[in-house]
Design a protein around this nucleic acid. Structure first.
Length: 444
RNA sequence: GCGGUCGUGGUGAAGUUGGUUAACACACUAGGUUGUGGUCCUAGCAUUGCGCGGGUUCGAGUCCCGUCGAUCGCCCCA
């Protein structure tokens, strides 16, 4: 028998969880709004060349992309990240010419990477990210970090720290790469297998190797700082000053190099310090890119941005014990007893038209059972449609919190609800008596 | 892509050197209360079924192989 299940590395987000997602998305929208970033929605798949750029050595681009072709000619790819699509769009729509710069957008949505799944790492996952294109300024780098930091903080996360570094401008980076290659060429034999591979594919990444971290070869490696131009050094200092200004704590990590090849100057990574995080500790990360706009055919313009892993954000929130459940209670629950036909259904419709979140029960389960459902659904008021009251065009209404039950005319039901819910809002109570003559079980 | 651990109902889980009826608890359903819940009591609740498919055996949830999935570390990255 075949088992139907989600494909590896993908998951259903069930109703109980979408409430959390909505909350995260509300925080994101609110903060982006305050910072003046508007939402952009680019396609989930693009021409492969958008993501796979010449000379890009990252694994993400070379080994982890879901690429496909429908006609043997074109190659399309499910987006593995957000920045490339946004920059492509920026150039395609000539936003560099007719918009006020910087161009400030945020995106959120599914990304796809063919990796071995782990906790906090999925093949389909959600990222929120921002891009600020067109103006190069240390203040903007700092603003970008501040925005992401603000989202994380607004979610209630405490165990995070900002790591920051500079890669220098494009030339510094190229120079340094040469220096590194020159140095490691002599010491290849002393490095671990992964590093030997990195040496060929992406020499910069040699720096954050965990195995060789403590080795003499690594410690004596030429520092990136020495290849930095005066301008880049100065620029970095200004970014740090701006962060001081914002009172955002950070740690300079001169071994921090990002995986994507397009970064220049500022790079940063915000990681969780919580113990249960496992190996996937980065919450959001990004940096400045000087060459991308030009690469896509635009003018020489710089940009900066970050991407945040939303599943990870949620995971960390959970690890830190942050409650994200929204109120899922119902206002009204309508239940029927015996032969009451479509009265409960009609009552539910009336309540809904009046704006009350209403559930009704179309079955003939016992009252006891239905009240259990009421408890589970956390309903505030229950309308009980019984045959004897219905003879007088009346129904019982019970308010759960006060345990008060009254019998009212059907066409007064919304009035009674309005009165009760308004009372609650204003926080006081006045003893209402049952006005029904035929009803002998008033308040119990 | 590499190495390790794991996979029993709606949930948390027992399951002894392979041995006959897959514990226990929670949740759920029904009844005790001929029309009112959150306590209590009683009963029911894993299509001969233990992720799926093969194999060994008189006999497998327990052993072997394959496969799918989860998870941990590496790689990579958000």
């Amino acid at each position: 028998m075949k088992n139907y299940q989600t494909a590896r590395g993908t998951q259903d987000i069930l109703p109980k969880d979408t409430r959390k997602w909505n909350q995260v998305e509300d925080v994101i929208k609110q903060i982006c709004h305050v910072y003046g970033y508007d939402e952009i929605r680019t396609p989930i798949f693009e021409d492969t060349s958008v993501f796979k750029r010449e000379n890009d050595s990252s694994d993400m681009v070379n080994k982890e992309m879901y690429s496909f072709s429908m006609n043997q000619k074109d190659s399309l790819t499910l987006r593995p990240e957000g920045t490339a699509g946004v920059v492509r769009s920026f150039v395609q729509n000539k936003n560099y010419a007719n918009a006020d710069l910087p161009y400030k957008v945020f995106y959120k949505g599914e990304m796809f990477r063919y990796e071995r799944p782990q906790k906090g790492r999925y093949r389909q996952f959600n990222q929120f990210g921002v891009e600020n294109i067109g103006v190069k300024s240390p203040y903007i780098d700092a603003e970008c970090i501040a925005l992401g930091y603000s989202v994380v903080k607004s979610m209630g996360l405490n165990c995070v720290k900002v790591l920051i570094n500079t890669l220098g401008d494009a030339q510094s980076r190229i120079d340094y790469r040469e220096v590194l290659v020159e140095y490691f060429k002599e010491h290849l034999d002393g490095l671990c297998g992964d590093c030997q591979r990195r040496f060929v594919q992406n020499p910069l990444r040699l720096l954050d190797c965990k195995v060789d971290k403590e080795s003499e070869i690594m410690k004596n490696a030429p520092s990136l700082q020495d290849s930095l131009s005066v301008e880049s050094k100065q620029y970095f200092d200004q970014v740090l000053q701006a962060l001081d200004n914002l009172q955002i704590p950070y740690e300079i990590d001169d071994r921090l190099v990002r995986g994507l090849d397009y970064y220049t100057d500022t790079v940063f990574e915000v990681v969780s310090t919580h113990s249960e995080t496992g190996s996937q500790s980065a919450v959001f990360a990004g940096g400045r890119y000087d060459g991308l706009v030009e690469y896509f055919g635009g003018p020489q313009m710089s940009g900066v941005g970050f991407a945040m892993g939303l599943e990870r954000l949620l995971l960390l929130a959970q690890a830190e014990g942050i409650q994200l459940d929204e109120d899922d209670s119902f206002d009204v629950y309508v239940m029927g007893l015996g032969e009451v036909n479509d009265v409960p259904f009609n009552l539910a419709t009336m309540c809904r038209s009046a704006g009350y979140k209403t559930e009704f029960n179309p079955t003939t389960r016992s009252l006891k059972a239905q009240f259990k459902t009421v408890d589970r659904k956390n309903c505030k008021a229950v309308i009980i449609v019984g045959e004897s009251e219905l003879a007088n065009n009346q129904v019982n209404i019970k308010f759960i919190e006060t345990q008060k039950q009254i019998c009212v005319d059907i066409d007064k039901i919304v009035e009674v609800l309005d009165a009760q819910f308004e009372e609650k809002e204003h926080g006081h109570e006045h003893g209402e008596k049952c006005e029904c003559g035929s009803c002998n079980k008033e308040n119990d």
